[in-house]
């Protein structure tokens, strides 16, 4: 790649500036809305005090329930989707390469089905789950969220698997006596770290932001709780949205930094090859 010209540098700065404005203006507006009463324009921190004041209210308990459910479901969705997809994709690439297209089609299918339509199919399934198999606890929505996340998790893992010499790595480990679980956990997972973190990010984002399915199946997750609170107190809803957004960004940046640090240790950008 050639050197960056002054003109190119300015262009980059302008694009970066526009992108920052595009993303930060709505957030600033949200922050402003959380402290400014809409009708009078009066500024106070009542919404934030309600959140951090230590008091208990129906709104806060609803919010806590929704947030807890969403976080549990996010963890479940991450575990199930990776536990399901990673071994499958490895197996298919190593043993059944002709099935790659089939798996890809199945995994990408949820992209083509609108959430509302998905709910129509899921409603009877969850009726059975609620009454005959498990119960009506919101966390079982995690199964539906796995379906929603499949396309994104598939794409992340697919690019990760393409970047490594899967066959040679696994056969080398096998020839030294590694069982398949050992190959997966001690050889492939460490080399797919970036792809796995991407999968976790996207699953967290999808689950924490999901509203339609939970609302239509009358479950309480973070977004439905925010919706309920917003009906009666928009400022608290705005404050919580901002907090969650900030928390999610912080979490993702932290994870990304950890992975980047590890990657840098293993594959620094400046090679120091020995001839």
């Amino acid at each position: 790649m050639g050197p960056v010209t002054p003109r190119g540098a300015w262009f980059r700065r302008i694009v970066l500036g526009l992108a920052l404005v595009y993303f930060l203006v709505p957030l600033a507006s949200l922050a402003d809305f959380s402290v400014r009463f809409p009708l009078t324009g009066k500024v106070d921190a009542a919404a934030w005090q309600a959140l951090f004041g230590g008091g208990e209210s129906d709104k806060l308990s609803l919010l806590r329930e929704g947030l807890t459910n969403s976080l549990i479901m996010a963890v479940m969705a991450v575990v199930i989707s990776l536990g399901l997809l990673l071994p499958t994709m490895v197996l298919v690439r190593l043993r059944l390469p002709r099935m790659i297209k089939v798996i890809e089609f199945v995994c990408l299918l949820p992209l083509t089905v609108p959430a509302v339509v998905l709910v129509v199919g899921l409603a009877p399934v969850y009726l059975v789950i609620s009454t005959k198999i498990l119960d009506s606890n919101t966390i079982w929505l995690a199964f539906a969220y796995v379906i929603l996340c499949l396309p994104y998790v598939y794409r992340a893992l697919d690019s990760g698997l393409r970047a490594i010499d899967l066959k040679t790595l696994s056969e080398t480990a096998r020839s030294f006596g590694a069982s398949w679980p050992t190959v997966l956990m001690r050889v492939l997972v460490p080399n797919l770290r970036s792809a796995l973190v991407s999968s976790v990010f996207v699953t967290l984002a999808v689950v924490l932001g999901e509203f339609t399915i939970a609302r239509m199946l009358a479950r309480t997750n973070l977004q439905t709780a925010l919706f309920e609170i917003n009906l009666s107190d928009g400022q608290i809803a705005a404050a919580v949205s901002l907090l969650i957004l900030g928390g999610t960004i912080l979490l993702m940046v932290t994870l990304d930094l950890i992975v980047a640090l590890q990657e840098r240790r293993i594959r620094p950008s400046t090679r120091s090859d020995v001839s």
Binding site: D165, T168, T172, V187, P190, N191, R193
Partner: peptide
């Protein structure tokens, strides 16, 4: 193996 088969991590 023919291709370098060291574990990169």
């Amino acid at each position: 193996f023919q291709s370098y088969s060291l574990f990169p991590h």
